[in-house]
Design a protein around this nucleic acid. Structure first.
Lengths: 196, 196
DNA sequence: ACCTCTATGTTTACGGTGTTCACTTTAGGC
DNA sequence: GCCTAAAGTGAACACCGTAAACATAGAGGT
């Protein structure tokens, strides 16, 4: 009984906290759980958390990194279903916004608590890598690729945020309507259809 | 001595709270002040606040509305310096992002605490009105105008948020670089220069 | 002029939070 | 089989938002 769960001593508390933390963030409530609440859920005293994270912010950062992985996977999966690059590009953006709507609290946390731009340190953001990877193949110059990537990111992020904040109807069709920037990205045709 | 400040009994507490609240949000700290802290600053007991706002969220909403006015003014001022519509459009977007960078906490509050999309009720958002006003004149159909407005809003908002969250360098030149969406909006030329 | 009534502000209190500190337990290496 | 360092505990502190009961002052009718 020392393999995984059940016996927190030695081993699993940190993972258990992350797992329960993510689960809590997915919960219907629009609020992130408190440190104490989280400890309660996992059946441990509040202060035990401090054996694994220096403070709540560190916990949140870990959760945010977990979320980045999830987002990266979602986008990768979306991109893999696309036949050509332009479609990959479009589906990637759509997956981004959909992820935000599907995990609102986690998504917010990812950007509120994330690392402060000095990219190097932590594991590289997979979502960002995928994006620049695509735009590099789509653009002539490296400069244009970077600009394209950041502009696309901005649009998707803006749509996601405005929808999360209730400023724009969070409608699935509406996502596509807004993401279809027509002439902005010349390669982006009216080709691909809705995926299920 | 009953005209304005000095004697809170009868009159000015609500306004004083809003004023001090905005001031606190502008303060260097990246954190919104607590209810109690705010009351302390204004020299009143914590519970006195509840005579003017049902709860903290209501106070925040009032502050958010105040912020919207400020943003609206900033954009209007920016738009007024522009000779033609396309330039108005461009400068409006730029003013939006710059406002966010200049008042990060307030800007966040405006969208975190704002009314839930059912526009009607409160005073109409001046910034949004200005934007749709411009895009209506720029687009042929009403539909295209609305789409243009929301797409432009999304880009600006995305840039603002990503910069606030430290995902993108919050550089002044960079704002223009990203906001220049080239062919997206055909009318948008390379005409206008930097404003002081 | 008085008395009253209501709007405004105060004190006290409760449950919740993040975090610190001194302590106990426990698992694994010698 | 000890012993030590890692892992978990409980009490305590300073905050927070909010509720309830109380205090006061100022306007307005009589």
């Amino acid at each position: 009984m020392s393999t995984s769960t059940e016996n927190y001593h030695h081993g699993s508390l940190r993972d258990a906290l992350l797992k329960e933390g993510i689960a809590a963030l997915e919960g219907d409530k629009g609020k992130e759980p408190s440190l104490r609440e989280l400890a309660r859920r996992v059946g441990v005293s509040a202060t035990a958390v401090y054996r694994h994270f220096p403070d709540k912010q560190a916990l949140n950062r870990a959760l945010a990194r977990e979320g980045s992985k999830l987002l990266g996977n979602a986008q990768k999966k979306a991109a893999d279903t696309a036949p050509d690059l332009p479609t990959k590009f479009a589906l990637t953006g759509r997956a981004y916004v959909r992820f935000a709507l599907a995990h609102p609290v986690l998504f917010r946390l990812m950007f509120t608590q994330g690392e402060p731009v000095e990219s190097g340190e932590e594991g590289p953001d997979p979502a960002r890598e995928l994006l620049t990877d695509i735009t590099c193949k789509l653009s002539a110059t490296r400069e244009e690729a970077e600009r394209l990537a950041l502009q696309a990111w901005s649009i998707a992020h803006g749509i996601a945020m405005l929808m999360l904040d209730g400023r724009i109807p969070a409608d699935d069709k509406f996502i596509d309507h807004l993401l279809d920037t027509g002439s902005l990205f010349p390669f982006q045709g009216r080709s691909s259809e809705e995926s299920p």
